[in-house]
Each structure stands twice: as structure tokens, then as C-alpha cells.
Design a protein around this nucleic acid. Sequence first.
DNA 1: CGCTTAGTTGAGTTCGTTCAACGACTGTGG
DNA 2: CCACAGTCGTTGAACGAACTCAACTAAGCG
Lengths: 250, 250
Amino acid sequence: MATTRPTHAFKTPCEQCPLRALPTFREFSRDELEFVSKFKRGELVADAGATILVEGAHSAHLFTVLSGWGFRYKSLEDGRRQILNYVMPGDLIGLQGTIMGEMQHSVEALSPVSLCVFERDKLMTLYNKHASLAFDVTWIAAQEERILDEHLLSIGRRTALERAAYLIAFLFERASRLKLFNGRKYIPITQQHVADTLGLSIVHTNKTLKKLAAKGLIRWQERACEVLDGEGLKDAAGWEGFGESVRPFI
Amino acid sequence: MATTRPTHAFKTPCEQCPLRALPTFREFSRDELEFVSKFKRGELVADAGATILVEGAHSAHLFTVLSGWGFRYKSLEDGRRQILNYVMPGDLIGLQGTIMGEMQHSVEALSPVSLCVFERDKLMTLYNKHASLAFDVTWIAAQEERILDEHLLSIGRRTALERAAYLIAFLFERASRLKLFNGRKYIPITQQHVADTLGLSIVHTNKTLKKLAAKGLIRWQERACEVLDGEGLKDAAGWEGFGESVRPFI
DNA sequence: CGCTTAGTTGAGTTCGTTCAACGACTGTGG
DNA sequence: CCACAGTCGTTGAACGAACTCAACTAAGCG
């Protein structure tokens, strides 16, 4: 059974956080690092398939993803599901619940996920004591907004083939920046996930992905999507990619 | 010609801001009010149809809508346009440009719009001196994210009829809270706007709206959508509406 | 008075859906 | 160890939703 559970066993010290080493993330001052370190309550591990946060919950926690892949989604009463975005290391989750009281979406793990846990109540002291970090939280929220804008454009106005290419190019670019690929470039999603992200049926998603495969852009293997030509996907989607920019994280 | 222009003639003092009187907005402390008042640079007026912000611009300003209706959108190279969300009084616009350097979407006025103008550079002092206001900015960003989530669910998974009903119910609910309707409940959009929001063609949008009209939920008149039955629209969309919640604004 | 914009309607086509059946693979219990 | 169920991916056929093309009305404006 897929579950989430706390790991008291091992707690990565923020000073040695593996994410900080990546060039995508901005440098922290000693002061900031110290605060974040105290802000952190513990760690949590979720199996692939486990639900990390549930729509409607009043979560007392705020998380940062340390490792693994997941996704955010919403559903209609009759079960139709829409994936809103994917979460990867460095992403903040549960902010909506923290700021507005109730989660309006759910979060599920795609692979084993480990998370840093922060105390919701202490967020206000972050705002009071560390304006620079408060600014970072806003930056992250604005960035998420930007991604949702792009997804909305994609679902609303791109064709099925363009949409599929955009989605995979998008995931590939994000994951590449985070150096998530060791050898082969596998994105750990099923075609059902792709369908629920693009707003298409599984059958048509399958046929669309086959077209991308026929063009030599991707290959579907071992329940994952292997990216063969990231640039080709961006071309097929008519997508520029995100600019450079160093991003903050908590 | 539709233009935007500064009005030095008349500057509404923040203390007498007509929006603060509305119950939707949270109360401000004397301190906060004083700061916002100094933060404000002036006012700007845009005609209906004028472009307020343009994709790709490095805007030096941040705005709050004082009155009027507008919308945010993105386009693909070949001209396909997607409306992302609508802006109404109390909404902050240009935050993306302020925080991340470059606007990734454009904003256009639907009706005459008046805006409060803030200096981009002073945003950091807001974070330094007024944590409560900084928190509000994040709140606003998180709220926008929430709305985009709902739109994504709508475009991705609702049928054309449900989507149309959702959109109008959504606009109606927001406008009602802001007491934007005096007599008749007119939403100042064309069917082209509806089409570009829902990701449909104009022809099909027209046929879909006719169905809503046949059900007695709306009426299309004088280049605007008159809402006849807001609750009926929510039912038709399978949409709950947003909860209560008092919102902040700058 | 013509020109433009917004809305309407019909006909034919394309894109995406549902239904259905099947193969490959995984995990589980007998 | 095998039988069986469950998930994932694949494919064909028939249907339906949404699109394009096209023609036309009504209103607003110079």
C-alpha cells in the first residue's frame, strides 16, 4: 500500500541540502540559512502513488520537495480529473492551504518523494523577520502562476500534437535543470497522466504519442516516457522554453 | 483611438478609496494605510480596448485596478489567443513583470479602466517594512493561482456548455461581490472573448451561448452578456463558487 | 451611404470520443 | 509453480463534438 510517513531517522541539514548545490537555485546568506534550518520541522517520505495532500484538507504543514516527482490535480464530482502541474525538487507545496486555510487541489507522488516539512504557523515569522525569504515565497507563487498561464494557453489553443509535445518538452526542461536524469532521460508518467494533463481521452493520447514517437522525438518504455529529442519537441510545440533566471527556494 | 494616459488631474486618496468601503476587502491599520498612500505614484486611465500591459515588456510599474473591467491573455505566434483571466477592481496587475523582470502576458481593458500606479522599485521596501502587506501580496498571488487551477479544470475537463456556464457564473460572482452592477447585470464582453477564454471557435461559442439563453440563464444584449440566473449557471457548470473569505488588497 | 464589427445560421469536414477487444507485464494467492 | 486479476498500452470501428467555410442580418460610425 502506498503511504506517506515521517522519517525521523534521517534529516538532511539545510546547510548540506543537495539542492543548494545546483546552479538554478540562488545563494543564501548565512542568516537566511540559519532561519530556514530552524523553520524546518522534519522530513516526510511518500511512496509512488501515495497522496501527499488532499483537496479540502486544512493542512497544518507546508512542504518543499527534496527529491522525486509528483503532480497536483483537481477533480469534478463525477471523477473527471485534471492535472494542473507537476512538482519536482525545490517546489513548495501546500502554500494555498497555508495562506487561505483550505487546499483546493490534491497532490500525488509519481515516484518515491521525500519532503521537508515546515510549520504552517511559523510562516508569519518568516514574513516578519526575513523579508528576502518572504519575497522568495511570492516569487515562487508568481512563477507557478506563469506556468499555469502557459498550460492554459496550451490546453485552450494548441492542437493535440502540439500540446503533447509541449508537455513533454516542459517536463524535460524542468527536470534537466534539476539534473534529475542520470543516464536515460525517463519521465515517470503513464499515458493516463498525459491524458489528464492535456484534457484528452487516453485513446487519443495514445495515438498522439505514437505520432511523436514516429517522428523520433520520444519513445514509450517501461511505463515512462523517454525523451529522445528535447529541441525537436519544443519545435513541434512552438514553445520557447523558459528563460534563464536563477530561482529561489525555501 | 484607444489609449492609456496618466491623470494628474485627480488622485483618489487611499484613505478615501471607494474599494475599502466594500465588505470583501480587509480592514487596514493606520500604519498600513499610510504606507500604501506613499507607495502610490499616481493614477492611469485606459479606454475600452486599450492595451495596459504588453507581453515581453519590462514594466517599471505595478498597478491596482480602481474601476473597470479588463483581461489578461497570451498568444501563439500565428495569432491564436487565450484569455487567462479577467481583471476587476482590487486586482493587482504587473506583479509578474515586477518580480521576474518580464511580463509573460498582456492586459487589455474591456471597459474604461482606472488604475493606481505604484513604483516597482519600492516593492522591496514594502517587504522590508510591512510584513503584513507582503503577506497580502503573496495572498493575492496564491488566489490568482487558485483561479487559474479552476480555469484549467474547466477547459480541460468540462464540456462546452459547462465551460460557458462556469465562465459566466464566475464573472458574475466576482462582479457581484464588488458591487459592480447597478441595475441590469451586464458583463461587458463579446462572444469572441468568451471563445478565447473557453478555447472554442466563435461559431461554436455562439451556438453554446444560445443554449444557455434557451434555458433562460442569460441573454445576449447590447454587446454584453446579461445574467438572468446566477445560481442556475452554477448548477449548469457544476461549480461551487468560491467560499466566503475576506481578501486583502494593496 | 458604404464600411466595419458583432452576432447568427447552415452545410460539410475534421478531430477527438466512446466502445470494444486484445497482448504484455506485474503482482498475488492457492 | 501456476492461475488469475489488475494495470498499461495498443488498435479498429463508429459516433459525436467542435471546426472551417460561407453567407447573411443588424447595429454603429464616419
